[in-house]
Computed example of a mutant assay.
Amino acid sequence: MENQKNIKLRLRFERFSSKTAEEIKAGIERLRQSESENFKLNNAGNHIWLGIGMLRREFWSPTLHIELDKYEDGRTHVKGTFGPDPILWFVFLALHFVVGVLFVIFGIIAYSKWSLEQSPQFDLAVMFALVNAWFVLYFLARYNRKKGARQMDELLNLSEQLI
Rank of each mutant, 00 (worst) to 15 (best):
E23W: 03
G148D: 03
R15D: 14
S115P: 00
L116G: 05
K146P: 00
F139A: 01
K5Q: 08
S17L: 04
Q121E: 11
R142F: 06
A21V: 00
Q4T: 08
H96A: 02
Q4M: 14
I48V: 11
F97V: 14
Q4N: 08
D123C: 05
K147S: 01
A94W: 11
A149D: 14
F92I: 06
L50I: 14
I24G: 05
I66V: 14
L124I: 15
N43R: 06
R150T: 13
G107Y: 03
E29P: 00
S17D: 13
K5H: 08
R10C: 02
M152D: 03
F97N: 07
K19G: 04
D85W: 07
H65D: 10
T81V: 15
W134Q: 07
T81W: 03
L64K: 02
H77K: 15
N38P: 01
V98F: 15
E14M: 04
A141Q: 07
S18H: 11
I87R: 11
H77N: 08
E22I: 09
G83C: 05
P120F: 04
E160D: 13
K25A: 03
V91G: 04
L11T: 06
Q161T: 12
A26Q: 14
K25C: 06
S36R: 14
F92H: 09
H96L: 10
F139D: 05
H96P: 02
F59E: 07
G51N: 03
L95W: 07
W114T: 10
L116V: 00
L55C: 00
I66M: 06
N6A: 04
G100P: 07
E160L: 08
R10G: 00
F13L: 10
D153K: 12
G80N: 07
E2W: 04
M1S: 12
D123T: 01
N46G: 12
E37W: 03
G100H: 10
L9I: 10
N144G: 12
Y143L: 13
K5V: 02
L95H: 15
S36P: 01
A129I: 08
R150D: 13
V91K: 02
K19F: 09
G45Y: 10
S159I: 02
I66L: 12
Q33W: 03
G27W: 07
P84S: 05
I28M: 12
K147R: 14
T81A: 06
H96W: 13
S112D: 09
K25S: 07
T76I: 06
R150W: 09
Q4G: 04
F122Q: 06
L130R: 08
M1A: 13
L95E: 12
N42S: 09
R56Q: 13
A94P: 00
E117S: 07
L130V: 10
E29W: 02
L11Q: 13
N42L: 07
F82N: 05
W89A: 11
G53K: 02
S119R: 02
A133S: 15
D123H: 06
D123N: 12
Q33G: 04
M152F: 04
F82R: 05
Y138F: 15
L155E: 07
V78S: 03
E58Q: 14
D123Q: 13
I52T: 02
L124R: 09
G74S: 09
A133K: 05
V91R: 04
L31Q: 14
G107K: 01
